[in-house]
Write a protein that binds this DNA or RNA. Structure first.
Lengths: 343, 343
DNA sequence: GATTAATATTTACGCGCGTAAAATTAAAAT
DNA sequence: ATTTTAATTTTACGCGCGTAAATATTAATC
């Protein structure tokens, strides 16, 4: 990239000997021009360092190549990873993803949707808060661009929902826990922000029934996103006060389990499935830290790569064909049991 | 916001009874118009749901209100938090932050800088990789907009560096460890990506000298960002093979320490400072998980709020006054000792 | 080599807003 | 009430590119 500064596409057109409309076509889709032309453009590009002005590009265009991706909390490793996977899928398909986190605050979800709206994205991939989500804000952007929900479902909103089959995944771990020891209680927050939580509770109830055990649900106080802290404080209280009918607990998610493990450690309880262990604790999600907890956490791994891939490709299909599927689809992927030391 | 759809500023001008240039002024800085006018505009805004087209706004403008913020890895809670703090500071100052993570890949840093360049930001706040950073990519954008480094310093690049005083912070924890028990060894990766790592090693060496102890540095293999895994595997090897001259280890960062704690647990070692403990392990950074490790981790808390605030405000000053400080400044904030159970 | 289909060029207009200069109006100071 | 000062309106142009239509060129087919 020599010092030659090109100021606009016009200039680059004269320098490269290609007409401006053809260049415009190229930048919108390199495949849309003849191979020989493409090569000439790319050769010129190498020796001139020109990039079209993104603002001018998108200003007078009916549809941009931007994809809005919103997750509730980028600080949560699960959402970080799934957000990243979606990002990569978008780039691969020639779109420009805009990944926005809501820092655990539902009001930021509405704000992010609004700022996306002014970026005129071609589509939106949203992992909503669920209960905390501003339904009107979602419906507002939905009128303008296709939207697909992932991770958490909100009834009948968006063209598709892609997530994990909680019924299957929770069934899997409940079955394992029942088979390998005492049946689990279910540990969760009283007012979970995420709709998956209630799905998991229902799956737990159903699964316990299938195995012929009496369910026992521990709902503790706590809201917000400080799951570890809630698990530690409230889970610790449960452990101390002996509110458990069996020696096994299934936590609604790994972050709660991590907190509970911490509480168990403080109480001097030995967690695990070996001899001499006081209690078994299991989680759900295969949080990146679950491998490093003490003891390492038995949990369910979500197939976030598949979820991300599917959500993205479904969105691209809608964008490309410009037609919504006649019926709202719900795609669920199976979770996998990850056996470690805690249960 | 009734159904009235306004398509451009012109339309909104006729509806609101305000001239378009005045509206333009208002949207660029609400304070720049008379109070009575501002109130009229805001009243109209409430009943008409108009927002200027961002692309058209920025297209023919010498300087946008965008601030690029780049951190090495949004999945790392430390960078997530400091990135968020910077974001908030930008919004507060009326700028639009664009927070980009590099997912631990230095090549993404260069890519992100490049995509920022085409967004014509008013300035850039960069937490660089350090060794892995593409110096040329940084210098390229530096020619166009002011840039401030935070967290990790790269010699003489950018208008300012804002970070933690590792000499002070490591001195603090070494002093504590020496005073309260046996002097620590220093545990780190062989080829740390982050320049803070070598700063901390130097600070350790100097601090040990001050207290009259022989330093002992454990450099283990490993690169990349899987710190916990490296801490677990390599730290575990150190613990097993008895390569420690004392019962105390200071890890270069919390994530290594978390891995080492996990290894110690697996080996059946009791970590802590109480009676009957086999080893003391300390970290650096006050990672959000450090409160929930087993045992909870004694560490150093960085003042990331101050770092973010300072980095942002310095950038705004340069942008507003349109002049770089005559000399490159390095601003260091002190770390605070966080005493928990592990050391 | 002639015909056809695909691609490129020419020409021209518009997007929504920034921004400058001059004219006007309103508010503040005297 | 008059002058001074500040803010607003009018007018007008341009930014860089999308995009459409007509024309010219190239490549593919026979």
């Amino acid at each position: 990239m020599p010092p030659s500064k090109i100021r606009n596409m016009e200039e680059f057109a004269t320098i490269s000997g290609i007409s401006r409309p053809t260049l415009s076509k190229y930048f919108n889709n390199p495949e849309s021009v003849r191979k020989s032309t493409r090569q000439r453009i790319e050769a010129a590009l190498k020796s001139h360092d020109y990039k079209p002005n993104v603002y001018a590009m998108n200003q007078n265009r009916q549809t941009t190549r931007n994809i809005g991706v919103i997750v509730p909390n980028l600080a949560d490793p699960f959402f970080n990873e799934i957000g990243r996977a979606v990002e990569v899928a978008c780039i691969k398909a020639g779109y420009s993803p805009i990944l926005l986190g809501c820092h655990g605050k539902p009001e930021l979800e509405a704000e992010n949707l609004e700022s996306l709206r002014s970026l005129k994205p071609a589509g939106v991939l949203l992992a909503p808060f669920g209960r905390g989500s501003d339904r009107k804000a979602i419906e507002k952007i939905l009128k303008e661009v296709p939207l697909i929900l992932f991770d958490a479902n909100i009834g009948e909103i968006g063209a598709e929902f892609v997530g994990t089959d909680n019924l299957q995944s929770v069934g899997l771990i409940v079955e394992y826990l029942c088979r390998s020891g005492e049946p689990p209680s279910f540990f969760e927050m009283e007012t979970p922000a995420n709709p998956n939580a209630s799905k998991r509770r229902q799956a737990y109830l159903r699964s316990m029934e299938v195995h012929g055990f009496a369910p026992h649900i521990l709902q503790v106080k706590g809201s917000g996103w400080n799951f570890e802290e809630i698990g530690q404080i409230e889970g610790g209280a449960v452990l101390r006060e002996g509110g458990l009918p069996t020696n096994t607990v299934l936590c609604s998610n790994d972050r709660l389990a991590i907190g509970m493990l911490s509480a168990a450690y403080k109480l001097g309880l030995k967690v695990g499935h070996g001899p001499g262990c006081d209690i078994r604790i299991a989680g759900h999600d295969d949080h990146p830290f679950s491998r490093f907890t003490c003891p390492s956490l038995t949990t369910i791994a979500q197939d976030y790569a598949a979820i991300a891939e599917r959500a993205a490709s479904s969105l691209f299909r809608i964008i490309d064909t410009n037609e919504k599927p006649p019926q709202r689809v719900e795609t669920l992927f199976e979770g996998k049991l990850v056996l470690r030391d805690s249960a």
